[in-house]
Each structure stands twice: as C-alpha cells, then as structure tokens.
Design a binder for these strands. Structure first.
Lengths: 257, 257
DNA sequence: CGGTATTTTGAGTATCGTCAAGGCCAGTGG
DNA sequence: CCACTGGCCTTGACGATACTCAAAATACCG
C-alpha cells in the first residue's frame, strides 16, 4: 500500500488544526506513534462490536458511522470528516461500524500507548475533551434536524449543517457570486439513511426546494443555495442568521468561483 | 427555600456513584463548592443562549434538554436523570434550555472554581470525560431510536432505552413476576416531543403495542413489558438480547413486586 | 459509444398530523 | 358525599406526507 503524499498541505497530523495547539513533546510523541492508513470507498474500517485497538483521526475523505439494524438496513448516525477522531478511548467495544464513504486517509494511534500518553499529557487530554464536546454538540444538532417532520425541512437543516460545520472541509462549500454552492459528498441513498428517509423522498424533497426557489440543483451532487433564510426557517432555526454559524461560514469560505 | 434532607440516601454529591471514585481531596473540594438547589416541575433552570455560570449535577428528578424552534414548538433532545451533569465546561453559551420536567434537586458548582479545580485534578477530569462520552453514546442511541420510521417502533426503542439506561434510576423499572414494569416519568406531550411525534400518535402507538400483546398499559404512565424480544425487533436491535443492556438490566433491577 | 449505477418520476397504499370531541382522574368547593 | 373544574389521555374522521414498487431518465466510466 503506497502512500501518496499530498503536496498542498502538511503531512500527517500536522494538517489537523487542533493538534497544532499541543505542546511540542506531546505532538512529536503522537506523531511517532501515528500510522497513516488509506481506505477505498466502501471499505470497512472498524466493524460494529469490534474491540477498539486504535484511536484514529481523519486526515482526508468522508467516513460513515453506522449501525446495522435487525432487518439488515444500515442506519447512518454521523459523518466523519478531516480532523474528527473516532475509536473510543476508555470505553469498551464500539457501538457503531465505521466505513469509508469516499476514498479516505486516516492516522491511527495504537490504543494502549495513546491512553498512556493521554494520562501524562493534560494538553492532549484537553484536546480530546474538546473534540468529544464538539461531537456531542453535533449529535444534538443532528437530533434537531431529525426531529423535523417533513423531509424537505430535514434537507434544509442538512444543507445548513454542511454550510456551518463542513464549510472548512475540502472544497465542499464555495461562494459563487451572491450565493453558496455546496457539494454533497455522499450518495442519495446515504443521505436518505442519514435523514431517516428513502432516496426517492430525498430526491422529491430537493426538487420541492428547487420549485420553491430556495435552492438550485446544478448537478445531483451540486446544490446552489438561493435563499438561505428560507432554509433556516424550514429547519426551525429560531435565530437567523445564526451568528456563530454564519460567522464561521463567512470566515472560512473564500471566494472560489 | 428549605432543603428537605432525604434520609434514605447519602446527602448531596455523595449520592452520585461516579463521584465516589474521586480522590478524597478532590471530592471534598467539590463538596465545598457545590450548592444544592431545588426546582419545581416546569421551572427553567437555564435558558437557551445563557452564558453558563455553573456546572451542575442532577441529584434527583428529571430534567428536559430542549430547544425552541422558529415556530415556537419545543423540541426535546434529551432527558437528564440523577448523576447526569450539565452546563458546558470550556464552551460558550448553552445551545439548549434546561427545564425541570418533575420536581428536581441539583448540585451546582460555580463555573470558574470548577474549571480551576478541573485543571489540577486529573481524576475529576477523567470523571468528566467519561460522563461526556456517556452522553455521546446516549445521544447516538437516541438517533437510532429516532431513525425508525414508524412511531410504534420508536416507542419500542424508547421503552428499551428506559429499561437499559434508566434501570438504576429511582424506581422506574421494577420486576413483576416474569415481566418488567416501567414507569414513564414524563407526560405524553413531552414523550411525543422527544420521539418527534404528536401526543395523539403516541397514544395510538401504545395501544397498537398493547393490541399486539407486547405491552400492557396498566395506567397511562405504567407500562408492563410482555414481549421484550418483539420490542427489540421493532426497535431494530440486531443483537437481542443485547448482552450489555440485559446484564445491566438484570443486575440493577431487584425484585420489587 | 455502450453498459452500469444512480437519480428521478409515477401511481397506489400506509402512516402520521390535524382538528374536534369525548373520557378519565385528581383536586376543589359546596 | 357529590358536583364541578381543569389537565391529561384517548378516540374518531379526514387530509397531508412519505413509503413501496415499478419504470424511465440521467449521469458516470471506460
């Protein structure tokens, strides 16, 4: 398995902003124990119920966190993007399977050395705590999105989440003139699973939003946002424009088009 | 506001199992800074967007974590029970309001002293980390429950969650002969909000489950479980009987009836 | 340019939300 | 002791929404 070094960004964990705040000693210890791994779209990185042998950090690509239901359906409970960590620390086996949704690169740390480093590095402990708090926030935001009754409203919520949280990731969100253009990195079927609906309904939902003049479907996976406010209303966002989100959004999204 | 001491359990944070693992110095520092507070059902403990001035731990009762949507509806994203902590550490204002669902007693720690203690007490840091990881697990379990299509299936998932996670709380779950009897501590309306449905639909769902012979509605808030396996299948639990859950369940539920 | 996977569209059915009315229970006051 | 009241739960009828299954259209890839 040959590693292809990416020239346009720092190598390995240096690319992850949150690790740059670590003390040099901790950082280099982490760097020494980390091993890069690549996975192709569709590969399983960690199965449900596996004892966790490593803690990892996503460098590039998109991962699905999912659970297999009794009837065989796969329910997606979250998407992992660059900078996200997974593999439970201090806990037993994982409750969810991790699969590559696209080609993916991660940095894996063997669990025991990592925990050992953790106990003597308050700075790493802090980074981890913040990471988990962030995860928790996202999980709850997701619950709000999922709590919406109509599928188009969930779609609106999804688009807003991508705008705010995934804005800094890859080139998912770009500014095109007045509006924003979003690339949806996963298939309709995955999106349907994520939003608790069927692919057909997702499709209809997108076209409903388009007919309402709130978005424009450039290509199936490229959505242009025409009326951010209308989407926010659909999603039930009380405080539009969400100050923190919008600030993040505008700070991180540079003029690309 | 007179505090009524409860005689059948240790006072204050001593009652919370997870704190008993702290080192004595940390524990007593925590005990010194903690202040008990009581709230009546319906009172708001912390509003959405409030800057968090304290971190707290639930001693008794049930709290709602909720968000007010644009249309004024209240969406519940979680229930807090004894031992749960809330009030974000190291983060900005809260994203959700905290309200008392029943009469409630909490122990509040002023935020700054708490964080100060936290930075010099790795044991407290560990407890907090575990608490947050636990929260994250629960949030994801909820997402699985919410991802179910039909409301009766979500109800089934809810009942299982109560059995596993809330088994140790108060006297919510008791064994009655062969089966389990569950007390539902919140109203139909709250339950509906939690499960993303209407109170009417929740009612119909319970009666559908009763007609199917899987539960028996003893009183509106007392549900007897007749067919745990059928509920698990509805909820999409692949691995019935869920080993960890069932073990917890049987370990913690003593013969009461 | 063809073959495959994905997305979209269509028609029929099941489920849920909505609105309105009725029933149950506890607390209150006669 | 009983009637009254208010809150909550339940039931019924109808419209809206989403799921299912099937087929067509489009995009993707060599």
């Amino acid at each position: 398995m040959a590693y292809v070094l990416q020239k346009d960004r720092p190598d390995g964990i240096s690319a992850i902003r949150q690790f740059s705040e670590l003390e040099p000693a901790t950082f280099s210890a982490l760097q020494d124990m980390g091993r890069k791994r690549r996975y192709e779209a569709g590969q399983t990185i960690s199965a449900e119920g596996d004892p966790t042998t490593f803690v990892a950090c996503v460098l590039d690509g998109f991962l699905r966190m999912q659970k297999t239901l009794a009837d065989g359906r796969q329910q997606i409970v979250g998407i992992l993007v660059e900078g996200d960590m997974f593999g439970q620390v201090f806990s037993g086996p994982q409750h969810f399977a991790i699969e590559a949704a696209t080609d993916t690169e991660i940095c894996a740390f063997p669990r025991l050395p990592f925990e050992k480093l953790l106990t003597r590095s308050p700075d790493l402990d802090r980074v981890l705590l913040l990471n988990i708090l962030n995860e928790l926030d996202r999980a709850r935001d997701w619950m709000i999105v999922l709590s919406t009754q109509k599928v188009c409203d969930r779609l609106a919520g999804f688009l807003l989440v991508v705008c705010s949280r995934f804005a800094t990731v890859d080139h998912l969100v770009t500014r095109v003139g007045e509006g924003l253009e979003i690339r949806i990195p996963i298939s309709r079927a995955d999106l349907a699973s994520l939003l608790g609906a069927r692919a057909e309904t997702i499709s209809r939902g997108f076209h409903t939003l388009e007919d309402a003049g709130e978005i424009s479907i450039v290509k199936p996976d490229i959505i242009r946002i025409l009326d951010l406010k209308a989407l926010a209303v659909r999603a039930g966002e009380e405080d539009y424009p969400d100050p923190s989100n919008l600030r993040d959004m505008l700070r991180s999204v540079r003029q690309h088009g």
